[in-house]
Nucleic acid binder design. Sequence first.
DNA 1: TCTTGTGAATAGGTTCACAGCA
DNA 2: TGCTGTGAACCTATTCACAAGA
Lengths: 205, 205
Amino acid sequence: MKKIPEPSRKRLVILAKILSQSSEKKLTSVDLSRITGWGEASIRRDISSLELHNGVSNGYDTKILHDAICTALKINSPGAEKHRCCIVGLGKLGEALLESSVFKGSSFELVAGFDTNCNKIEIMKSEIPLFATLDLEIKIRSMKIEYAVLAVPDEKAQMMTDRLVTCGIKGIVNYTNIVLSVPKNIRVEHVNTVVVLTGMVAGGE
Amino acid sequence: MKKIPEPSRKRLVILAKILSQSSEKKLTSVDLSRITGWGEASIRRDISSLELHNGVSNGYDTKILHDAICTALKINSPGAEKHRCCIVGLGKLGEALLESSVFKGSSFELVAGFDTNCNKIEIMKSEIPLFATLDLEIKIRSMKIEYAVLAVPDEKAQMMTDRLVTCGIKGIVNYTNIVLSVPKNIRVEHVNTVVVLTGMVAGGE
DNA sequence: TCTTGTGAATAGGTTCACAGCA
DNA sequence: TGCTGTGAACCTATTCACAAGA
């Protein structure tokens, strides 16, 4: 299989999600175009890069296509081990992310929460083990944590990122208001509400 | 000024943020390349599309460049009226977003929170006015709310989105785990942790 | 000498348009 | 007839490479 271009991959991730949500048995590129707003030729090319050849003249079988995308992108593989994540910073937001059940049924597993406030981690009751930030390096390595959700106060964001990077973290979901500096091989997604809103306003119409 | 291409705009938003965080008086394209990891030629072209001509042989003046980007992208314009936002769904997550001070100092103003649970909105103490979801349409129109942060349970996500769309909302920051269907002219950013993580894993190395 | 700004070359993605299969 | 899959054309964005300014 040839390498799938970056924008294609992004769309395929969304497509997979749509397919898993859909109750239709078959979907055509026209259907998917209507749902997503993307051009239908574009959708067909994205899918054709999977070299699945499932759709000829019939539209795509929802389940088969979904599984094919997951396999190609190595996401949600049923048997595969889940990716281990942690939350760094247990303020209001971190706590909300910790307690919410968003991770249930996903291919990610939340295995640790960190906060500098030792009192807090003792008092908080949570199904997820909580640790002092002091032990960040030790725990991330020993627990083989791959991804971190960053929800610390802005002024600690870069410092904590540097520590995560030295532990060999693969990616950071950044809920802070700070643009983080990381080595090229580490992925950061900036999902802070204000930053995202700013991007929307700046976007052309 | 010619129209700025989409990827350029995205980078400029980030650049503006970096500039506002930086304490340096001058920054060269090489400096910015090191910080961001982007090619320096790319950075120079992004900036040159502002037709600022501030940098010749000296690097860019941090403040001037910052303001120029903000002006060009119509973000953070000092005198301009702030964009009015609301939060829809005041569960753990919505509440955390409501109480956090992320909106402070930004060009956005949080002016309303909505929840179906009337008890909750009476009991909750908040500086932001809270309303029943029943009044969503009325309030969004009368308060001229432009953007919504969606933090409702997954099963209500699309329904609530449809209601927001009919009120003429311009964009939605989507914290749910659902891919939303909206008309082309409405912007949606998907910031749900699991979705973002999935995108990271799928991303090439 | 250092750095920007930008034509020109290259690479990357999207869309068109149609052959081919059911 | 209705749909996919894909060469070919088109369009967009990045990178190269260098002239020109300080």
